[in-house]
C-alpha cells in the first residue's frame, strides 16, 4: 500500500514536471522552427520570469500577480532576443555563429542575474495555504495552481496552432523567403512566436521560482530537457513536444526514485549528444543555403 502511494506520488510529480517540460518544449520548437537557431536563450527567458515572480511576490503576496509579472519580464527578454536574432539574420551570419551568439546571450543573462540578485537561491513569499486531499494523494496549492495554469496555457496554445498563426509558423519554418515574397508579414509571425514563447517561459519560470526558489546558474538543465523533448517531438508544433515532454517528465520522476538527480541530467545531455552525432537533421534545421557540389 505504501509502495503504491509512493508510485502515485511519483506519477503526480512526473506529470507536473512533465507539463512544465512539455510547454517549454513547445516554446523551444516554435522559436526553432521559425529562426532555425538552437534556442539556448530559452533559459534566459525562464530566468527572467522566475526572478520577476519571486521579487514581485514579496511586494504583492499574490501567486497570480507574481506569475503575471514573470510573464511580462520574460516577454521583454524575448523582444530583446528577437532584435538580436534579426541583426544576425540581416548580416547573414552562419548557423554556427548564430548558435555561438545565442550561447553568449544566455551566459550574459546568467551573469547579469548573478550581479543584480547575487548567486544564492532567492525565494518568493507567497502564502502556500493548506494542501488538498485528492484520493490517496496530498496535492499542494502550488501544484494545483500550477496544473490549472499549465492546462489553460496548453489549451490556448492548441487553439493557436490550429489558427492562421500556426499556419504562419509552419510556413515560415518551411520556406521563410517564399513566405515573405508572397506578401505575408513574416515579422508579425516572428513577433507572435516570440511573445508566445515569452508567455510560456515566463509562466514556467514564475512557477518554478515560486515553488523551488531561483538561482542564476541552475536553468541550463531544464532548457536542455525542453530542447530534447522538442526534438523528440519531431516536426509537430504542439502534440509531439507535449507528449515527449510529459514522457520525459515521468521518466525523470521515476529515475529520481531509483538514481540520483545528477545522473538524470547526465543522461539528458547524453541523449542530446547522441542525437546530434547520429541524427543531426533531427536536431538542427538544414541551413537555407545547403548545397551539393
Amino acid at each position: 500500500m505504501h509502495l503504491s502511494l509512493l508510485w502515485l506520488e511519483t506519477a503526480k510529480n512526473g506529470l507536473v514536471n512533465g507539463a512544465l517540460i512539455a510547454l517549454l518544449a513547445v516554446a523551444f520548437s516554435w522559436i526553432y522552427r521559425t529562426t532555425r537557431v538552437f534556442h539556448i536563450t530559452l533559459g534566459a527567458q525562464i530566468l527572467a520570469g522566475a526572478y520577476a515572480a519571486v521579487y514581485f511576490s514579496r511586494l504583492v503576496q499574490s501567486f497570480a500577480l507574481a506569475a503575471i509579472a514573470g510573464v511580462f519580464a520574460s516577454i521583454a527578454v524575448s523582444m530583446v532576443l528577437m532584435r538580436a536574432n534579426s541583426s544576425l539574420q540581416r548580416r547573414e551570419a552562419s548557423n554556427a555563429l548564430r548558435l555561438i551568439a545565442s550561447v553568449g546571450l544566455y551566459f550574459m543573462a546568467v551573469g547579469i542575474c548573478a550581479i543584480l540578485f547575487g548567486p544564492g537561491i532567492k525565494r518568493g513569499s507567497v502564502p502556500l495555504g493548506s494542501s488538498l486531499q485528492v484520493g490517496p494523494l496530498l496535492v499542494s496549492p502550488t501544484d494545483l495552481h500550477y496544473t490549472i495554469a499549465l492546462i489553460t496555457v496548453g489549451i490556448v496554445l492548441m487553439l493557436l496552432v490550429r489558427s492562421p498563426v500556426g499556419m504562419g509558423i509552419a510556413a515560415v519554418g518551411s520556406n521563410r523567403r517564399l513566405y515573405s515574397v508572397l506578401g505575408h508579414a513574416e515579422g508579425r509571425v516572428l513577433t507572435i512566436v516570440h511573445i508566445t514563447t515569452g508567455v510560456i517561459a515566463g509562466f514556467c519560470g514564475a512557477f518554478e521560482g515560486l515553488r523551488n526558489g531561483v538561482e542564476p546558474y541552475g536553468y541550463l538543465p531544464i532548457t536542455i530537457f525542453a530542447a530534447v523533448a522538442a526534438l523528440l517531438g519531431g516536426r509537430s508544433l504542439f502534440l509531439g513536444p507535449i507528449i515527449a515532454g510529459l514522457v520525459l517528465g515521468c521518466l525523470k520522476s521515476i529515475a529520481t526514485q531509483t538514481l540520483s538527480d545528477a545522473w538524470i541530467d547526465t543522461a539528458i545531455y547524453g541523449i542530446l549528444l547522441i542525437a546530434v552525432c547520429f541524427w543531426p537533421r533531427l536536431v538542427l534545421a538544414p541551413a537555407v543555403d545547403e548545397e551539393r557540389p
Binding site: A96, I224, W263, T266, L273, P280
Partner: peptide, 28 residues
C-alpha cells in the same frame, strides 16, 4: 571523427553537449 562528419552548428551543439556530459561525469 564525429566533428568531421557534422555541419558547423552541429559541431557547436555536439561539442557543448559533450562538455556538459564530461563535467557531469566528473561530478558523478
Amino acid at each position: 571523427f564525429a566533428a568531421r562528419r557534422l555541419r558547423g552548428d552541429a559541431v557547436v551543439l555536439g561539442s557543448f553537449a559533450l562538455l556538459l556530459v564530461t563535467v557531469d561525469l566528473l561530478k558523478n
